[in-house]
């Protein structure tokens, strides 16, 4: 990585493996960039392994997962467990949001299950967009990155 960031966070933006929707990702990228963050957008249908590979390389300040196909509660839980099992990514702040279940049923149960699985926050439908900005503002400030610097010190 060669960018030098001082204020905004580097955010890894992704959806889950089964979700082909992208307008939500396009919107979030613009929103996050407007808040001064640098966004790496992985696009639709991201296999867990691909997300981990990119995350290890990018070392984001935060991971934002957006899913709207209703499978987010299943795919998301599996993804975050894999992430938390990775030594490099265990502590990276991660949030998931969108339409996470089908027909809005069992939302509360999904939220708790996703938090239990390892997400730091869960943003469900109807939550204002500012919630995401507040979440990111509360994450640890970005490290100073020098061009060509090695990965973040643990």
């Amino acid at each position: 990585m060669t960018s030098v960031l001082t204020r905004g966070r580097t955010v890894l933006l992704s959806t889950v493996s089964s979700d082909a929707h992208t307008w939500n990702l396009v919107y979030l990228q613009l929103l996050l960039e407007e808040h001064g963050h640098h966004v790496v957008n992985l696009g639709p249908c991201v296999p867990d392994e691909h997300l981990l590979t990119v995350a290890r390389a990018v070392r984001p300040d935060a991971i934002v997962i957006s899913s709207v196909n209703g499978h987010g509660h299943l795919d998301g839980a599996r993804l975050i467990r894999t992430l938390r099992d990775d030594a490099d990514l265990a502590a990276t702040p991660a949030v998931i949001g969108g339409k996470l279940g089908i027909d809005g049923e069992d939302d509360d149960r999904h939220v708790q299950a996703l938090l239990d699985a390892g997400f730091d926050a869960v943003v469900t439908e109807g939550t204002p967009a500012s919630a995401l900005a507040e979440f990111l503002a509360a994450t640890p400030p970005p490290r100073a990155v020098d061009a060509g610097a090695p990965a973040r010190a643990a």
């Binding site: 919107y27 613009l30 967009a129």
Partner: peptide, 11 residues
């Protein structure tokens, strides 16, 4: 350039 707000409005 399009803002997030304008994107939602246009969509």
């Amino acid at each position: 350039r399009i803002t997030s707000r304008r994107l939602v409005t246009m969509l």
